[in-house]
């Protein structure tokens, strides 16, 4: 057998790949479920925090800033491990899936709040004053005048951050979530062959590369006005 054949037989073994393809595919489904949950809950919670912060209630804002700082400083893997191994001691036993969801959701919430808040504060005061002088209330001004302009500015930084955090679903494998990397790793140890890992890697590229390319396009389309 030539070196090339041996390489292909080791890393792209057709028999092993066929055997573990269903496992990898079920991992893809779990990764997508996890990613959708994280993105939806993280962005919503971040937006909610930014809107509360706009009310400018001092003690509440300090709390929000602290929470945001906390989840920006802690490594996501540490938060996942903390929830998964720590909460059972408090009588709660979230699954690996739920732990990863909560942890990455909180991280995305923190970053999203910062970005949404930056967007809101970047809208000139005059916009607020003009809107209020036409008779709109505080809430109406925020929702109908400020937010639509602010959101446009937040889209490029938000997409980048969201992709970076969503890729973190792979961290779930540390707390036994059966997503792509988890499935691939156990298939490697069962088959003693790295082909499932190559399949898993390909699955990540297929899932995330279109998102990254789309983000690049969005970035140029919604770029910050200079």
């Amino acid at each position: 057998m030539s070196t090339w054949d041996r390489f292909v037989d080791t890393f792209f073994n057709a028999r092993v790949m066929a055997k573990y393809l269903p496992d990898i595919l079920s991992g893809v489904v779990v990764t997508i479920e996890l990613a959708v949950l994280i993105v939806a809950s993280g962005l919503l919670a971040g937006l909610a925090l930014a809107l509360v912060r706009a009310l400018a209630i001092r003690p509440l804002n300090w709390l929000i800033i602290f929470i945001v700082d906390l989840f920006r400083s802690l490594p996501p893997l540490v938060i996942i491990v903390l929830i998964y191994f720590g909460l059972p001691a408090a009588g709660l036993s979230p699954s690996g899936f739920v732990s990863t969801w909560i942890a990455l959701g909180l991280v995305l919430m923190a970053f999203a709040e910062e970005i949404f808040w930056a967007g809101i504060t970047s809208i000139p005061r005059g916009q607020w004053e003009a809107a209020r002088s036409t008779g709109l209330g505080f809430g109406q001004t925020l929702l109908n005048v400020v937010l639509p302009q602010a959101l446009r500015l937040t889209i490029p930084p938000l997409t980048n951050r969201t992709i970076a955090i969503t890729k973190g679903t792979a961290l779930g494998t540390v707390v036994a979530v059966t997503e792509i990397l988890g499935q691939a790793s156990s298939a490697v140890s069962n088959s003693y062959n790295p082909s499932p890992l190559m399949m898993g890697s390909a699955a990540y590229v297929v899932l995330f590369l279109p998102v990254v390319v789309a983000a690049r396009w969005i970035e140029t389309k919604f770029a910050w006005k200079r």
């Binding site: 390489f7 990397l181 790793s185 890992l197 190559m198 590229v205 590369l209 690049r216």
Partner: peptide, 23 residues
């Protein structure tokens, strides 16, 4: 650049750590 922006760092790490020994 896009490849590494799309590829989770943990997967890359596991690929090097668990994959390369087979080579």
């Amino acid at each position: 650049v896009d490849f590494f922006r799309a590829f989770p760092p943990l997967v890359l790490l596991v690929l090097l750590f668990a994959g390369l020994p087979f080579a």
